[in-house]
Design a protein around this nucleic acid. Structure first.
Lengths: 233, 233
DNA sequence: ACCTGAACACCGTTCAAGT
DNA sequence: ACCTGAACACCGTTCAAGT
């Protein structure tokens, strides 16, 4: 984890605080959400974590909405560095596999932030979460062009790829975020809903509960790649 | 639109109000979100729309979180009636097509509520949004069993189907919800981001901006069905 | 230059009190 | 039985004032 947001240390203010800055605030916000979840992130709480009153943050960030936008931007920059810089995939199939793995890694590293990447209104309507930074999308299209994709094909690939990632990773992060997977909760839930009315769910319960996200992701991605292959002619 | 939530009229209170009830409140909440969006739905605003102070709602609903859960439940009941009752598809392929169309219809009817269906923590971790009601999932599994699916295959189909719907419909509703598609915004956005740095996006702009959700949905669904076919042996 | 205190307009929610 | 007024603990945000 050599990400910019996990940097600690550095200069300190007289009060024992790290000096405030936009980056320091955004990094702390990400750490906060990672630990406590988005619902608990308030300007006041965030200020407190930085050793400062909430009002001090407004010198660096226009408001809460822009704070969240900034969080998304920081993660997209991280994704860019992680997936686009020095990407030397041997084929477009490898290229997509590498990128998909990178986005999934991001989602797994920040499961409680990922919904933000996935759901914040994008800057332009044709930017599809979770692939929502101009720089990243430009590099993506350029990459595909380098592998011989036509304009039409690379746009289609962008769309399909984003849709695929959104569905899979939103479900995976939401499962990862859900309560400490206490099987007792399942039982309680089932019982409170009159188990008897749902015989198939009852029978398939154990099978439903198995975590298959990795396999599903790989299988659906392979399938998506096949679909794109067909479209290429 | 014969949905239960669009019923008006009926008995009135002396004050000129419709009588309060859980259903009346949930229905009004859905109408409110449809019109104004989730961000503006507060207990106080909702009360005002029902001709009542916010505190009166607590007699019928435990709190705001449960209000939102209730909204999701009402829409899932609507989906159940719309897709599961009297479903007489001739094949499992038709069956999935019918169901997919029904979920898409729901998303298009309530584009600003759909994110709630998609993102609220499900009651059990193995329930996948947007297919999150026990009753609906039971019927789904039963339906597939009727077409000869093994338990393993129907569980796999449930997972893949939910993932597919989540990705596609979240993107489609989010695009539908975005600003009144003012092309001037795009231009302004592009210009503010130094267009020159993103030549491919610039060139492909018009192609990116074309709405293709219908075609994409159909193509990806067909593909999903093919994938399931292969898995069946 | 950078942070804070006090204040404003809003939340969700509780509860005793009204009708 | 059903609703409200008043109150509490919390928000985001502004701005004059402090250092």
């Amino acid at each position: 984890m050599d990400s910019i947001i996990s940097q600690h240390g550095g200069r300190r203010e007289p009060g024992g605080r790290r000096p405030l800055s936009q980056m320091a605030i955004l990094g702390e916000a990400i750490r906060f959400i990672d630990e406590q979840g988005l619902e608990r992130l308030t300007m006041r709480q965030l200020g407190a974590r930085l050793g400062v009153e909430a009002m001090a943050l407004y010198r660096y960030i226009p408001g809460r909405e822009q704070l969240l936008d900034g969080v998304v931007e920081v993660l997209m920059d991280e994704l860019y560095r992680d997936t686009m810089v020095d990407n030397d995939a041997a084929s477009w199939q490898d290229y997509l596999q590498t990128l998909a793995a990178g986005v999934r890694r991001l989602a797994q590293t920040h499961p409680r932030v990922f919904p933000l990447v996935a759901s914040r209104p994008p800057a332009a309507p044709w930017l599809r979460p979770p692939l929502r930074s101009l720089r990243w999308v430009e590099a993506f299209l350029e990459g595909l062009a380098g592998y011989g994709f036509s304009h039409t094909s690379s746009v289609a690939a962008y769309r399909a790829f984003a849709t695929f990632l959104l569905g899979h990773l939103l479900l995976e992060t939401s499962a990862a975020t859900a309560m400490p997977t206490d099987p007792a909760d399942d039982i309680e839930f089932i019982e409170s809903n009159d188990l008897a009315d749902y015989p198939l769910i009852t029978e398939l319960g154990p099978e439903l509960a198995v975590d298959m996200f990795g396999d599903e992701f790989d299988a659906a991605l392979e399938d998506l790649i096949n679909r794109l292959t067909v479209d290429l002619d």
